[in-house]
Design a binder for these strands. Structure first.
Lengths: 122, 122
DNA sequence: GGTAGTAGTTACCAAATGGTGACTAGGCCT
DNA sequence: AGGCCTAGTCACCATTTGGTAACTACTACC
């Protein structure tokens, strides 16, 4: 009764229901880690250059507000992607840089960026 | 005047301002491609299994609403990550699967997921 | 004639998100 | 005395986002 071997038939008449479930999706954490505007930019500038101070980050990431930059830096420090070095004094100096895992993530994301280059321009 | 060669000094007294700018960040497109809840889950279930129909996706991605699933599928089709196969008839059958680039992205993201496993549990 | 089944669409609402501008500490410079 | 500097913080507002529930078309089946 199922002699149709066309692509459509194969695709739309699976013998069994899917066994996959998104509940075990290993990308959820990655998604939470990178969610929010500017996160990828922060990761990128820190990965491409050297550690940067708060003011430097505000400058090189054109358009980001102090509020959101602070939020991102706090969160990324909390998750272990970046470290924060607070030098006491007046005025204070605070420097941020990638951790080892942060660097690995930066490198991996750069590779992914090269994949998306294969897509037609938007 | 700058004989302090400690890490802090090096980090916080750079000789030059940073030359990096986030304006050329190659990860922006990737960010737009993957933004929004459920996007990674959709990519994952399609990458792990076989092409799936709309109803299957709603089932395996527990909690997603038809509205958002439609939005994601439309957008991912538009960007070239997935294809859509509409089989006419009543009731209609619509099947979705990853394109070649979509598959590459899925594979790369899986690798990234393994990196985040190195981070301490949240 | 009522119901089921698929793949959506629509209007509406609540929550999350991000931007803006004002404000802070505390020492140094004019 | 006033202003500048850094690294934020805070209150407030507008936009964006995602969820919910009802509704659609079309045929077949009971």
């Amino acid at each position: 009764m199922n002699s149709d071997t066309s692509l459509q038939s194969i695709l739309t008449n699976p013998a069994h229901p899917p066994e996959i479930s998104a509940k075990t999706c290993p990308l959820e954490r990655l998604g939470r880690l990178l969610r929010g505007t500017w996160t990828l930019q922060v990761l990128w500038v820190l990965g491409e250059g050297r550690p940067l101070r708060f003011g430097d980050l505000r400058t090189v990431i054109e358009g980001i507000s102090a509020k959101v930059l602070t939020e991102r830096l706090r969160f990324m420090e909390h998750t272990g992607l970046i470290w924060r070095c607070h030098e006491e004094g007046v005025p204070p100096k605070v420097t941020y840089g990638l951790t080892e895992v942060g660097t690995e993530l930066h490198d991996g994301l750069k590779r992914l960026g090269r994949i998306t280059d294969k897509l037609p321009p938007e």
